[in-house]
Design a protein around this nucleic acid. Structure first.
Length: 990
RNA sequence: GGGCCCGUAGCUUAGUUUGGCUGGAGCACCCGGCUGAUAACCGGGAGGUCGUCGGUUCAAAUCCGACCGGGCCCA
């Protein structure tokens, strides 16, 4: 620190950060760091690629902190990181939606008349809009990944690797086409995967209608309940449970109704006339008149069938079934061979089959259909209910479930392997593995992979008129089968690829591409190998090796973690990763999820600048990130005050101290003899062990906790008690020892901090080390992880703990005796023999205790009783009836006088500080005090004059002339005053 | 509707696996002390229906059940 900044204290976290960033960037430190040691042991990692057509929020810094901690640790252990590439997820609906909004496009037809090629071009141009903001956020939080060479899921080589994976699945019979009921967004005109659906459930009001289904040739109506009247035109069956009991209830209007006995109270209050009771099985096969004559006749339609999925917990215990619009309906329809009838077009609009609502979107048809039923006497009851219903997570349009063609990854065929390979992974926190994630695996449904969209990896499947499907696994195959070479700048997106017509390898006929793109989650699941263009180019990807480590937030249990595992299992037949570290979400102060759509957002760039990357990293590391963390401005600003602030001040103290006397850096462990030095070195070794263990087990929490305790001990005990040694002359051995210990410990500490707090650690390393800020390879991040810092001495640590407990006891006694600490007392009495650990601290330990408590000596007394220590003269601390320690109630006159001198001296020092005087500014002092104090001051005037740099130092008993340079004090009822005048500078100090 | 996690002082939380001393700490607050590194530190104080109810037990924050509330996941 330059001399003119002497005494200004420690720099703030943002100041340190700016200094460190400047050093890193001037010397190209991160560029050299990313990949780790080129010939070191391989540590496999892949960054889960974020979509960056929108800005990040502060929550995104949480898992990135966790990733960075582990990667920094591995680099310091000499690992080669495969790979440290940043990555961007480029495809998918979020990007498409931005373009649709920009041009007011509302449907597939709109996009196609706009031009698919132009549409994709705009998507490509938009996909990385916020990449620079994400990069800047990474820079400011000290998140080291190589963003100069990121992988991008829209690049041709990446897509070719994805094709290779799809082809591998296809060849193994794990990728094929099916017709199933899937969630479908009529606005986006595509199917969605179940995890996308899960993001969009909302509470809404819907019609709740109970409809009469007249039984053929009977004066009875079946009652069936639905919240989706728009599915009634597609009704083909009514389903009953074979074992439920049904009642025929007389209604008085001439037509009896049939419903589950359990459901009767829901529909009738008071006594009802039950005409008959029968099991559901008896209803099987009876024909009924459908509510609308839309589907037309067909074998087996409009009759009652049986299935176990029916319950009587809600509705009537009879279920109206439209096989095109529900998974169970579809299954039953297929079993009963009644076919599928879907009156809606791709946008969810009714066609000619239902004239009543022709041209109406499905939801708006509800009231029209219900009114018509009522008019025809088919409506038994009509109400409105609140329930949850799925909406499109991106465009907010109501979804529907419908039977539709789709390509599937047959994950359900490899459930056992998924479970087995998941069990081979370590999860932090552990319970996620077999809990949330494991449960999901055992129920794994086939993965609906295809999307009827435009901006994505095109499904590389071509089908000929005879239905022969050909899956391509490379661009070379495409060129070969199409009979034409590909252009040098071939871009494998829609239009380009759609234009290619192949000749079917089976029959030679014309083969056209299936007009789908692939779920973006398949793209990102391929990242571990597609980032290297595997298997088309040589690279470090090893098909047999799982990743060593991944880390993301909790939402990825159903997202990226899942697709990584599916692809690792199906393509490479191995686990996806060895270890996984998962954090919960960062919540707003109110406990709600961070979201741009709701009110005020904590803006990450601004916060990282104003508060600093390290304090924000510390917020995540010092709390339990496996639970949701709530953060507001306040929390953020306070984060790191305690530990980081204390540490910065210890370093500032050290620097001031070392530089004042030009003491050298200390690079190797000093041989310590002083008990405090030995203790601190032992604590340092404890910290090193704890940190190493934590990082090796992929959980940084214990490392952060150990750092907090260590810094606390360093600041509030080691430094506090070592201060007299630091103030000794520069050539004194005790000063040298204290300096050597603190210098070494800080340097070593900075290496242990480097993974957690990269900026602070760098600052400490550069400032305390030997050649500050000088070259790229001088960064703490290249300094390696310490192997052994010093010798561990558990007995010494235990003894010191005991001693510090005794300090607390002593303070309590002083408080009770009402004798302030500055006034020395004759002795501290400890009862009973010292424990071996405490005794092990020897006379140094006793001296520490005496100095800290300002007593002249520490003596031991028999543990039996405090009989010799009457209450009139002693305060005694007892524990469980046995005496522990005792202190005299009053000081002797001599001690009192000594205390007063110290009191006055301290006040004068305080005054110097308040007057803005520097350490070496000489002053002239006149003190006025009443007799006993004046005498005490005169006796010690030489020492006081030296301490205060005062010449002359006069003591008078007469009052001082009033004036602006007079200070007055009143301590315990005794008044004294002083005049302190700064002398002309240039005079020799001391 | 089902699953997972959670509920302890105004706030942040330890303790719950394996029941056992007076439920421990930090921030904030009040009183006092200490301080020429510190946004600190030290002593004392005040602040707790350990979400609610019931059960098991000599003994429950801890184990069991039900319920209430929050978050996430699934439907």
């Amino acid at each position: 620190m330059p001399p003119d900044e002497e005494g200004t204290g420690a720099p703030t976290a943002p100041e340190i950060q700016r200094r460190v960033l400047r050093y890193w960037e001037e010397h190209g430190v991160p560029d050299r760091a990313y990949g780790g040691t080129p010939d070191g042991p391989v540590f496999r990692f892949t960054e889960g690629p974020p979509g960056v057509n929108g800005p990040p929020h502060l929550g995104h810094t949480e898992p990135r902190t966790l990733k960075d901690v582990q990667l920094r640790y591995r680099r310091m252990r000499g690992a080669r990181i495969v790979s440290a590439m940043g990555g961007w997820d480029c495809h998918g609906l979020p990007v498409e939606l931005a373009i649709e909004r920009k041009h007011g496009l509302k449907s597939h037809r709109d996009i196609e008349s706009f031009g698919v090629e132009r549409f994709c071009d705009e998507c490509r141009a938009t996909a990385l809009t916020y990449a620079d903001v994400w990069r800047e956020m990474s820079r400011r939080q000290g998140f080291w990944l190589d963003y100069d060479h990121p992988y991008r899921t829209m690049d041709a080589p990446y897509i070719e690797s994805v094709w290779w994976a799809l082809k591998t699945l296809f060849d193994r019979g794990l990728l094929d086409k099916g017709h199933y009921v899937l969630p479908y967004c009529p606005r986006c005109e595509t199917t969605l995967s179940s995890h996308e659906v899960a993001q969009g459930y909302r509470e809404v009001s819907d019609p709740s209608v109970t409809v009469r289904f007249p039984l053929e040739g009977e004066e009875r109506d079946l009652l069936a309940w639905t919240t989706t009247p728009w599915t009634l035109p597609a009704n083909l069956l009514v389903v009953a449970h074979p074992d439920l009991e049904y009642s025929v209830v007389r209604t008085g209007d001439g037509r009896d109704v049939v419903l589950a006995t359990q459901a009767v109270p829901r529909y009738f209050s008071g006594p009802v006339e039950v005409v008959a009771r029968l099991p559901g099985a008896d209803l099987a096969g009876r024909g009924y008149v459908p509510p609308f004559d839309a589907a037309g006749p067909g074998d087996g339609r409009y009759r009652v069938v049986l299935d176990d999925f029916v319950t009587a917990h809600e509705g009537t215990g009879l279920v109206h079934s439209a096989p095109s619009f529900g998974p169970d309906d579809y299954r039953i329809g297929a079993r009963e061979k009644v076919g599928v009838f879907d009156p809606l077009d791709g946008r969810g609009v009714f066609g000619d089959a239902v004239p009543l609502v022709r041209g109406k979107p499905f939801k708006t048809a509800d009231p029209i259909l219900v009114a018509d039923l009522a008019e025809r006497g088919r409506l038994f009851r009509s109400e409105t209910i609140r329930h949850t219903y799925p909406f499109c997570w991106r465009c907010d349009h109501a979804l529907l479930y419908r039977a539709i063609d789709s390509w599937f990854v047959r994950t359900s065929r490899v459930t056992d392997a998924l479970v087995r390979y998941n069990r081979a992974s370590r999860w932090v926190p552990e319970y996620l593995r077999d809990g949330r994630f494991g449960n999901f695996l055992t129920e794994a449904k086939d993965w609906a992979l295809s999307r009827s969209r435009y901006w994505g990896t095109p499904l590389p499947v071509w089908v000929c008129a005879k239905g022969h499907a050909t899956c391509l696994g490379s661009f070379a195959e495409l060129a070969q089968l199409s009979g034409a070479p590909l252009p040098a700048d071939f871009d494998p997106h829609r239009v380009t690829v759609d234009r290619v017509v192949l000749s079917c390898p089976t029959c030679g006929g014309e083969s056209r591409r299936e007009p789908y793109t692939v779920d973006v989650w398949f793209d990102s699941g391929c990242a571990p190998f597609a980032q290297f263009h595997y298997p088309f180019e040589p690279g470090p990807f090893d098909p047999a090796a799982p990743l060593d480590f991944v880390s993301e937030a909790i939402d990825q249990t159903r997202g990226w973690y899942y697709t990584l595992l599916v692809i690792a299992t199906m393509v490479f037949d191995r686990p996806a990763f060895r270890a996984n570290l998962t954090c919960e979400f960062l919540l707003e102060e109110t406990g709600r999820k961070m979201s741009k759509s709701r009110g005020r957002v904590l803006e990450p760039l601004e916060l990282l600048d104003r508060i600093g990357g390290d304090p924000i990293r510390w917020l995540f590391l010092s709390q339990d990130f496996t639970a949701p963390i709530r953060a507001g401005e306040d929390t953020l600003e306070k984060s790191g005050h305690r530990t980081l602030g204390a540490l910065r001040n210890v370093v500032a103290f050290h620097l001031e101290n070392a530089r004042a006397d030009r003491l050298p850096p200390v690079l190797t462990a000093p041989t310590a003899s002083n008990v405090l030095d030995r203790w601190l070195l032992s604590r340092l070794e404890g910290l090193r062990t704890a940190s190493t263990g934590a990082h090796e087990s992929f959980d940084p929490r214990p490392a952060a906790a150990a750092v907090r305790e260590f810094v606390d001990d360093l600041s509030t005990w080691y430094l506090r008690r070592s201060r007299p040694r630091f103030w000794a002359a520069a050539d004194r051995p005790e000063r040298r020892a204290a300096h050597a210990t603190l210098a070494f410990v800080l340097l070593e500490l900075s290496r242990l901090l480097a993974p957690l707090l990269p900026f602070t650690a760098e600052w400490v390393w550069q400032e305390v080390g030997e050649r500050g800020w000088s070259a790229a390879d001088r960064s703490v991040h290249f300094a390696g992880w310490p192997t052994e810092s010093a010798a561990r001495d558990p007995a010494l640590e235990a003894g010191m703990r005991e001693l510090r407990d005794l300090v607390e006891v002593g303070r309590e006694l002083r408080q009770r005796a009402e004798v302030r600490s500055r006034i020395p007392l004759a002795e501290l009495v400890l009862f009973g023999p010292a424990s071996p650990e405490l005794a092990g601290l020897g006379t140094e330990g006793t001296a520490l205790l005496a100095e800290e408590l300002n007593v002249k000596r520490v003596v031991r007394a028999s543990a039996e009783s405090a009989a010799g220590y009457p209450e009139s003269a002693w305060v005694v601390r007892e524990d469980g009836g046995r005496p522990v320690a005792a202190l005299p109630r009053r000081p002797s006159p001599e001690l009192l006088e000594e205390g007063w001198a110290r009191e006055v001296g301290r006040r004068l020092q305080q005054a110097r500080k308040e007057l803005g005087l520097r350490y070496l500014d000489p002053v002239a002092v006149t003190v006025s005090a009443p007799e006993p104090i004046a005498r005490a001051l005169r006796r010690r005037s030489t020492a006081l004059a030296t301490d205060l740099l005062a010449d002359p130092f006069d003591v008078v008993e007469t009052p001082l002339e009033p004036g602006p340079d007079i200070r007055r004090w009143d301590v315990d009822g005794v008044a004294f005053s002083a005049r302190i005048v700064r002398r002309a500078t240039g005079a020799a100090p001391g």
